[in-house]
């Protein structure tokens, strides 16, 4: 019943679908690494980004890429505002992780509630047509969207890697992540790099939501469900290991899609919860492989 073509199809589709998940996860893991905040306000940014693009395309007839650019500016501005107005105030008050957690959750719920009032809970697509050109490669169905999404994700991840490891601002950002107070003694402004981190996360989120919305329908509350995936991947990848979280995201998507070979699809949504639960209980510091 199952042949090599099917396995290849599942693997290919998993890799294509993991493209936006990787970007969401890296955005989340980056915030956690540099700011030290479990940023549950990310669903708010995801939803705002989507509906900004949607309104631009649907109401004003703006071309998709222009709409994406407008949404990028808007999402980055909101992300910056969250850091400058909320996170920094919480930090100044010496709020603990619970304070940040409550703020970010409430911010997300508030934004989602408002967006639901404005746009309703009806699932919406960004583009007029949800299908893209289909190519058959050795029996595997490959869409133009698959290729675009994977290439875009690869470029963004490589750019982030290059930025963090080969540029001075990136190295300063890592220095702030490792020890913000020590970094400040060397003249590195931690507030500046906290804000920059949020803006970079916004770029990743905006791109990911564009990829998602050009293939799959979106409604405000969906961002909360998608957030759980990023949390699970971040924990599995090892807290503080931004690119490890990205790899974990790919592995989870592949495992989740491959699971249809063994279990009914109705159980698939449970998969992420099981992984999240198992990771928290058995691998609270992430899955690490020992080397001799």
């Amino acid at each position: 019943m199952y042949d090599l073509t099917l396995y290849t199809q599942i693997l290919w589709t998993s890799l294509a679908n993991s493209s936006y998940q990787v970007l969401f996860t890296i955005a989340f893991a980056l915030g956690l690494k540099v700011l030290g905040v479990w940023n549950f306000a990310q669903p708010a940014l995801m939803s705002l980004s989507f509906y900004c693009m949607y309104a631009a395309i649907d109401s004003f007839g703006v071309p998709p890429l222009v709409a994406m650019s407008v949404a990028l500016i808007f999402t980055a501005a909101v992300a910056y505002a969250i850091e400058a107005l909320a996170f920094s105030a919480l930090r100044n008050r010496n709020s603990g992780p619970m304070g940040f957690f409550i703020f970010t959750i409430v911010a997300s719920q508030f934004v989602i509630y408002v967006l639901t009032l404005i746009f309703t809970a009806e699932p919406r697509f960004l583009l007029g047509n949800m299908t893209s050109a289909l190519h058959i490669v050795f029996g595997v169905y490959v869409t133009t969207w698959d290729i675009t999404a994977m290439v875009t994700a690869c470029i963004l991840v490589a750019a982030l890697y290059g930025f963090l490891h080969y540029t001075r601002p990136g190295q300063f950002m890592i220095a702030v992540a490792d020890n913000a107070e020590l970094a400040e003694t060397y003249g590195i402004s931690k507030n500046h790099y906290y804000a920059l981190t949020m803006v970079i996360a916004a770029v990743l989120i905006n791109t990911a939501i564009f990829l998602f919305g050009s293939k799959i329908a979106f409604y405000p509350e969906l961002s909360l469900h998608m957030m759980l995936f990023a949390v699970a991947a971040t924990i599995i990848g090892g807290i503080g290991n931004v690119f490890g979280a990205g790899v974990a995201a790919i592995i989870i998507v592949i495992m989740q899609q491959m699971s249809v070979l063994f279990i009914g699809s109705r159980w698939q949504p449970l998969f992420v919860f099981v992984i999240l639960f198992a990771t928290i209980v058995f691998f609270p510091k992430g899955v690490r492989f020992r080397t001799s």
Partner: peptide, 12 residues
């Protein structure tokens, strides 16, 4: 809104 799992199983 993503039914990939169920669709792949149907295709199989």
């Amino acid at each position: 809104t993503d039914y990939t799992g169920a669709v792949l199983k149907v295709r199989a």
